[in-house]
Design a protein around this nucleic acid. Structure first.
Lengths: 358, 358
DNA sequence: CTGAAAGCGCTAACAT
DNA sequence: ATGTTAGCGCTTTCAG
């Protein structure tokens, strides 16, 4: 960092005192400045390319223009990067910036983001959970003790010391399933990962309720994706093509093939995750099958918008914006909130008529 | 921000002076501290949950632990989020954090990120270009004047006041095309966006050279994606399904259908962008065609890894890490560099044998 | 309307 | 081995 001009330099240049410069720069309310003076100051500032030092300001004001953003796993995964973009956009609208923070436990025994808050680097924190895991206990306690404005996303957890944003998995699954049934399927195959966390349980519940209400038979099957191997599954987004990853893909394909044994012409296949429809179509076509199947996905992030006949577009961007709004509101009011995002953005295959298989 | 304990508090608690606390906390070289004292200080710090104020430190040290990250367009697009993750990961390894910065022009006439540098918020900047557009002139000048450590990605531009990281589009296209030809295609259809920027020109050049060298006929066709509508195209990643977007998709599909008129059984279809193979397969299958075509993509980010028979995996994550490395190196040495990332990560359809169409 | 000065929390040169 | 202190750049009270 080279030598930058300071408020003092501007004051000297404009032949006023530092205080006056500060008043002008900040439009300090209740301070009247002679227009001529103001003009001189502004010109001097422009001439010297003066930008107020952000750290001096924060130090003085006890107010940081940064919000910490923690993504428990992997920013490269579409659902998270879409959230991140929503967060970034909303924060910038409000004059804040997002600081990407890690969540490793440091030598103090608390996570990086908690330390960053203690260090005054951020005025609030948005924590994007995965697999239903939120902040660790110790960090949470530290943050609560400090009344840190914190928003936790997607952990389906009640809290009173911080705000939460969650997705309405049951409702979304119900809506999607209703739409699928409206096409007149005789039976539904629901295909989900082998993960027993609320997110997955709630989705299945939504599908189940809807099928029962409609008197349609429901068959469930599971993919070999578990909490133990999901990182491998997501690794394609960092470009890692490992032997292990390929093996997992093959086991996955096998489970899809098995699942396809369970359906007949006219049935529907609802996948709980995005992109899975690709696999179903691929195997079905490889077999030379002519069955008419309806494919749906309960979660889509735009990566496979051409694959499914019907899918729920997860409101990732909007959820990110919601988290940003809520953390700012929490900073302002001190009152935590709990927000549920509806999953009503259900989309029919956007291009042309649905082909039986493509 | 509530009242946090300061170095002085720790000093009082440990019954030493502030300087001593600072020495202990920072392990200041050349300062010997009695073990007993060190222990007392550390205990006091832990007890008070002391974390040094980052702004005071930066103010004093003229050194910020943040690097600014500017994504000219949209962090939600996979290639950018994958880069961002590479940047974040590498920076954190080196003790830095990434601050997401915007690139709107402010009232000073320079971009947000340039102002952030002037304000001392970041010690360096990584600028991720799109459509071959880098930082604007004025901001660039300000940053150059200040000797700001800057790395610009993907603008195919020479520079001597900042570092660059670029992709070897020609080489990548050549390698991919060679691999395609090794399958014995009689002819190649190359399908690219209607954008005349170096990235696209270089890719076509690579394909062309390879076909000429092999004596294979090359046919080129263009999709209706232009610089004017690409944001619409990318908007699916923020969940926006607009009328306009659908219309663009339909025009796109039509251009794919037209392009398919140009090929025969045994030919290859090389798309310049990721996910386009989906469209080709879809239309081909809808037509009930039985032609055997080889599909390849010159750029893939993991979103369509099951679609193409062959694709180049863009080294987004690695490029991000490279940008982070280079900005830190530039900060250390003051010597800018130019780095080219090879596109050698060519992947055969990972799952099972290639089906003619799936 | 403008100026002087204290102090935000930390570090490092200098003293002891 | 530890203490004293000036000062990083800014804001704001208080005086003029």
């Amino acid at each position: 960092m080279g030598k930058r001009s300071t408020l003092k330099d501007v004051a000297r240049e404009a032949d006023v005192t530092p205080a006056t410069v500060s008043y002008v720069i900040n439009n300090t309310p209740g301070q009247s400045i002679r227009p001529e003076t103001r003009k001189r100051v502004l010109e001097a500032a422009r001439k010297l390319k003066y930008a107020p030092n952000a750290h001096a300001r924060t130090l003085r004001n006890h107010h940081s223009p940064c919000i910490g953003m923690v993504i428990r796993k992997n920013l490269a995964v579409p659902r998270f990067s879409q959230m991140a973009y929503g967060i970034q956009t909303k924060l910038e609208q409000e004059g804040y910036n997002a600081l990407l923070l890690g969540n490793k436990i440091n030598n103090l025994g608390i996570a990086d983001y908690a330390e960053a808050f203690l260090a005054g680097r951020v005025g609030g924190i948005i924590f994007i959970g995965t697999d239903n895991q939120g902040p660790d206990e110790r960090s949470l306690k530290v943050l609560a003790d400090e009344h840190a404005p914190l928003v936790v996303f997607d952990t389906q957890t009640q809290a009173d010391s911080y705000s939460t944003v969650d997705l309405d998995y049951v409702g979304g699954a119900r809506l999607s399933c209703e739409r699928v049934l409206s096409r007149g399927c005789k039976r539904v195959l629901y295909f989900r990962p082998d993960i027993d966390k609320p997110q997955e349980t709630l989705r299945e519940q939504g599908v189940r309720e809807t099928c029962e209400a409609a008197g349609v038979e429901l068959v469930c099957a599971r993919s070999p994706i578990t909490l133990g191997n999901i990182e491998l599954w997501d690794a394609r987004y960092v470009g890692a093509d490992t032997e292990e990853g390929l093996r997992l893909s093959e086991r996955f394909l096998a489970s899809v093939a098995n699942a396809l044994e369970l359906v007949d012409d006219g049935d529907a296949v609802i996948s709980s995750w995005a992109t899975w429809t690709h696999y179903f179509r691929r195997i079905e076509t490889q077999r030379g099958s002519r069955r008419r199947l309806t494919y749906a996905e309960l979660a889509n992030n735009g990566e496979s918008w051409l694959a499914a006949d019907l899918y729920t577009r997860l409101p990732n961007y909007e959820a990110g914006a919601a988290c940003a709004e809520d953390v700012l509101a929490l900073m302002r009011t001190g009152v935590p909130s709990a927000r549920i995002m509806k999953l009503s953005n259900i989309i029919e295959a956007p291009l042309g008529q649905q082909a039986p298989n493509y």
